[in-house]
Nucleic acid binder design. Structure first.
Lengths: 175, 175
DNA sequence: GTCCGCATGTAACTTGTTACATGATTTA
DNA sequence: TAAATCATGTAACAAGTTACATGCGGAC
């Protein structure tokens, strides 16, 4: 599963991270996080300290153990399954002959808008957080490169939406 | 789930389709297919005829029922969750500081090669099967557009791999 | 007085993967 | 004689989603 107990934190804080930056490339619900943390704990890869709080239930501040750090390094250096696209929109497009073309075009437009918004967001991150990429090293460089990947994919998707909309539109009868 | 019982066929034949064309955008194992077919059957969306064969077990030739065709049209016209990237390689890159940079670069190169090969394959499909896209309509057009999406994403991924390899390489010490 | 943020969890369900099992025919 | 192709399935597991549950403090 996941391993962003790189810096100590609570399950909730990890969830925050997912909804922010890294969540654009890998998401998880809080239930998944808590389950995973529990599992990692039984495997001895993380330790935690219960921090009592006024009123609220205890916080569990998790931290990587030595064996956890070792496991993380091994995971990072191990090969990954090459990325495999799994896009429902493509499947629908393929089956589009069974539906109203105008509805499909409308749906493609909707996706186009969503990907445009995401792309804009990523480009703002890029401009604000990494004004000069040539000086980046280490963690910051890696974060930047991941963001660049997001920009590349969103751009490709957006261009594809345009191509599809144009092609379908051109085949509409009265127009 | 899936709905490519568009034309009648056996579970096995559907599996073949997945390993060929559409499998590049949505894959399923044969177990999943059989389970789904069984479910669709209990829901009355498909019917089948058992065709006895010499030696081999019976073939089950599935076909969409009227309500299945209706459900398919509804599915095609219903909105989809916008595509969400889920790429483990990006997560690893983000955590790359915990591993040997040369191992990471090697892994990126491996992915680069895989995506290059896929892109070449798709481009061959494009050249051989759709020499003149401007005349396409209906099902063939949709198939072509899906293929174009695959090309777009593979190209983007490939370019990203190059960018990452270059950036990481430039930061290696002795070199 | 109701919603939002912090903080954690259980339970049930759906989806997807892996392993195992059968058994004939054709190809190398 | 070993493998690949055709053709179907059961069982167990892993991963991911959705619903439900608790409970305080602060903002509106």
């Amino acid at each position: 599963m996941v391993s962003l107990a790189e810096r100590p934190g609570t399950g909730y804080e990890i969830g925050q991270q997912f909804t922010r930056s890294i969540g654009h490339f890998w998401s998880a619900t809080h239930q998944q996080i808590y389950r995973t943390l529990k599992k990692l704990h039984t495997e001895g890869l993380v330790t935690f300290e219960s921090v009592p709080q006024d009123g609220r239930p205890d916080k569990k501040v998790y931290q990587l153990s030595d064996s956890g750090r070792k496991a993380l390094r091994e995971w990072v250096e191990s090969p990954v399954e090459p990325y495999h696209l799994r896009d429902e929109l493509s499947v629908k497009l393929r089956a589009a002959e069974h539906g109203d073309p105008r509805v499909i075009i409308e749906e493609m437009r909707r996706h186009r808008e969503i990907h445009t918004a995401r792309l804009r967001l990523y480009q703002e991150f890029e401009k604000d957080d990494y004004p000069d990429p040539s000086v980046l090293t280490g963690r910051r460089l890696n974060q930047y490169l991941v963001l660049r990947g997001g920009i590349a994919v969103q751009t490709a998707f957006l261009d594809w939406c345009d191509e599809v909309i144009d092609a379908l539109q051109a085949r509409l009868p009265h127009n």
